[in-house]
């Protein structure tokens, strides 16, 4: 640190200059431009390079995530920058991040309820004609919630229990339980994602063309993305646990992965009850 010679008289972490924000933001810019070129099939100098630009940008973002968080882990584990007050910063930060994620899902649920509660709204002339005034819409076969979706509910709830088991192991400094619990949680997460992928591939309705499929795949698809992100978060925790990181009294990385996992779990419960069960009530199952 530039002012390393004048040790400040407080517990805050004065962070050194970092290249990651700039690299990450440039990555985000490339991802955005690449996505547009790709989606619109636009050529630059005659070549369609959208997917390549998108890939480069995405790599920049992932590289930034790796480098940035590796810095954070080093500061926490080995450089002693994570004083109690700094840990509290991070707790506030993570809670607020999850709050913003919750509000992100509010948008999908809003879109879903906007059509599912009012299938017979006389003002929505075209919807009334298409759906015959019922939800699920007339003519759309829906997924039976008591088959794979129920199994997935059980899987996610169980994974919530196993991650808590791992946490208890960590708190008692039982590293075996920590690793076993994490491994189990990750396995359950991957199982959930696989079942969800199977169900998506075999769904009797499409993302395109109907508000039923659009709201269904948007909400459950973004949830699935969050499950994948949460699983990666847990895998990172497992790798860190194997390197001997995390202490019973200080393990923010693990805590946040667990919080995130529970958040993903709760979102699923809302999806399951609102979209899978209530939203298919009285419908024709495939």
């Amino acid at each position: 640190m530039a002012n390393g010679h004048a040790k400040p008289d407080h517990d805050y972490h004065i962070v050194e200059p970092s290249p990651w924000p700039l690299i990450g933001a440039v990555g985000a810019l490339f991802t955005a431009i690449g996505a547009i070129l790709w989606m619109k099939g636009l050529p630059i100098a005659g070549i369609k390079i959208g997917s390549a630009v998108f890939g480069v940008g995405l790599f920049g973002i992932l590289f930034t995530m790796y480098g940035w968080w590796a810095d954070v882990v080093n500061e926490a584990e080995y450089q002693g920058h994570h004083t109690p007050v700094v840990r509290l910063h991070h707790r506030y930060g993570m809670i607020l991040f999850i709050v913003s994620e919750v509000m992100f899902f509010v948008a999908w649920f809003w879109a879903y309820f906007n059509s599912s509660i009012f299938p017979a709204d006389p003002a929505q002339v075209m919807r009334l004609g298409l759906f015959q005034g019922v939800w699920p819409p007339q003519g759309i076969e829906v997924l039976n919630p008591w088959h794979l979706p129920l199994l997935n509910t059980v899987i996610l709830l169980t994974s919530g229990a196993t991650v808590t088991w791992a946490h208890h192991g960590l708190l008692r400094n039982d590293r075996g339980v920590l690793k076993k619990g994490l491994l189990l949680t990750i396995a359950l997460g991957l199982l959930f994602t696989s079942i969800q992928a199977y169900e998506f591939a075999h769904a009797p309705f499409a993302f395109k063309g109907s508000i039923y499929g659009s709201t269904f795949f948007m909400a459950t698809g973004f949830h699935g993305l969050h499950v994948i992100i949460g699983t990666i978060f847990l895998i990172v925790c497992l790798l860190r646990a194997q390197r001997g990181q995390f202490k019973p009294e200080q393990h923010l990385g693990f805590e946040f992965a667990a919080w995130y996992w529970h958040f993903v779990d709760v979102v699923w419960l809302f999806l399951f009850s609102c979209i899978y069960v209530w939203g298919t009530w009285g419908g024709t199952f495939e």
């Binding site: 879109a111 906007n114 059509s115 929505q124 002339v125 075209m126 919807r127 298409l130 759906f131 819409p137 993302f207 395109k208 063309g209 109907s210 508000i211 039923y212 499929g213 659009s214 709201t215 948007m218």
Partner: peptide, 12 residues
């Protein structure tokens, strides 16, 4: 091709 804001697919 989704229909969130497109009445043709039941959107709004």
């Amino acid at each position: 091709g989704t229909s969130f804001y497109d009445p043709a697919g039941g959107g709004d």
